[in-house]
């Protein structure tokens, strides 16, 4: 299981978001809250490391990383695929 709180932990490690993570709802658009392209790459790297997954190129669009809930779903989906 991937919990929303796990994703929040990872977000707190990012320079561009760490100050605001606690004020974000699960559905806030992270790009509107200061996530930029550098930050989103750092986020992907942190998620790959933390959950031992690799994002395929098809999952590297903006949409997969736009909200905390979507990130959780993307990560959970990838974990399931890799377990299968």
């Amino acid at each position: 299981m991937v919990e929303i709180s796990d994703i929040r932990d990872v977000l707190k490690s990012l320079e561009s978001l760490k100050g605001v993570v606690d004020t974000l709802s699960d559905d806030d658009d992270l790009f509107e809250k200061g996530l930029d392209s550098f930050g989103s790459v750092q986020l992907m790297l942190a998620l790959e490391e933390r959950f031992d997954i690799e994002f395929p190129d098809s999952a590297l669009g903006r949409r997969s990383f736009s909200t905390i809930r979507i990130i959780r779903d993307t990560v959970a989906g990838l974990r399931q695929q890799e377990a299968a």
Binding site: S37, F38, M44, L45, E48, L60
Partner: peptide
């Protein structure tokens, strides 16, 4: 340098 950052996660076909 922007490309360098993106290459940290791109997989390529």
């Amino acid at each position: 340098s922007n490309t360098a950052n993106l290459l940290l996660v791109q997989k390529g076909s």
